[in-house]
Computed example of a mutant assay.
Amino acid sequence: MALSNNTRGALLMTLSMAGFTCNDALSKAVSPLMNVGQLMLVRGLFTSILVFLVARHLGALGHVRMLKDPMIGLRVLFETLAAVTFLSALGSMPLANISSILQSLPLAVTLGAALFLGEPVGWRRWLAIGIGFVGVLIIIRPGPDGFTLSSLYVLLSVFFAAARDLVTKKVDPATSSLAITLCTATGVTIAGAILTPVLGGWTPLSGATWAVMVLTSLLIFVGYQGIIMAMRTGEISFIAPFRYTSLLWAVALGMLFFGEVPDVWMATGASVVIGSGLYAFYREKKRREEAARLEVKGPVV
């Protein structure tokens, strides 16, 4: 039986989240062996090579001339800052906690779109955004007993990732996704090369660690391409909530490989964030349906 576009899109989104989260787990495992700059450099280098080969095979390198768009340069900057802050937190914070805070990204993008792009946001979605960020506060527990520098790094990572997604909306739609990914991966690699000596220099790696880094690059590629294919396959309002499956992967991997047991604060905060995000997706779907209905109805004459 053939799968519907929405079902295929949901499966692709789930695969994408699995790729990203498994990459995070592997990066966390090797983070004690090298500094953040070296991790960005090695992982970014393998990712750049892989994306280049695929883009060349598919004939997407012709779009490279379009990468002079300043919006792409700005996107690379925000992606690099998001990577630095995220990886800085990864080694010293439970994987599930990091993933829980990252679930606020769609809410942050909605907030940014309303403030900087002038997109309409009704009071219900404003309420959902506010409640969602309360959920983030529950997770990080501001105060001497809960808040850490790593929590700040993750919050900054959400901010930079939201800025990256907003800037992406301004990129010429004719530019190939693979070309943008190649430019981004190359930019992160260069940033890693600059940061490596600043953060302590190069650390020799074993063969097993090199193999892990190759695998992380493959997983990143799966994640990026999976999410692009998912968004182009089915309805965004149906597919987007499957982003939250990354939290299930993070909890499972954290417990299995790092002995991290989620506490009640994380579980409560994550539930608030995800519930708010799902409601925001629902309201966005209703808004689009209403706009489409009015468009079909047409003006009164």
Rank of each mutant, 00 (worst) to 15 (best):
A252K: 01
N23P: 05
E295Q: 14
L219C: 07
L105I: 11
G9T: 06
S237W: 04
V296R: 14
D24C: 12
T110V: 14
T148Y: 04
F238Y: 12
I194P: 04
M255S: 07
W265A: 12
F221Q: 12
V42S: 03
S88I: 03
G146R: 04
A208S: 12
I129C: 14
E289C: 09
L155H: 07
R283I: 11
M213S: 01
I129H: 10
L77R: 06
E284S: 11
L253T: 00
E119I: 07
V188R: 02
P106K: 03
K170T: 07
T47R: 06
L247T: 00
L111V: 05
L33V: 10
T189G: 09
G277P: 11
L156W: 06
M40S: 08
L256H: 06
G9C: 03
L74W: 04
L107A: 10
L156V: 07
V134H: 08
W249V: 00
E295V: 03
A193I: 09
A89W: 00
A163R: 05
A211M: 13
P173Q: 07
F258S: 04
G91S: 07
G44R: 05
T181F: 08
T175F: 02
L218F: 14
A29Y: 14
F281Y: 15
T110M: 11
K169F: 02
A267I: 15
F78A: 09
S217Q: 03
A18V: 04
S16T: 09
A252N: 06
E289G: 15
G275N: 10
V188W: 00
R8E: 06
S176H: 03
A89N: 02
T216E: 04
T203Y: 08
M266H: 12
P241H: 03
L58C: 12
R293V: 12
T175E: 04
A128M: 11
T189C: 15
Y244H: 02
V264Q: 15
I220N: 10
V300A: 15
A250R: 00
L102V: 10
G187R: 03
I194K: 05
F52S: 14
V300P: 01
A291Q: 15
T186N: 12
A108F: 11
P142A: 08
I101R: 00
T110Y: 03
A240Y: 01
A191Q: 06
L77A: 15
S151P: 00
T184Y: 06
L3P: 02
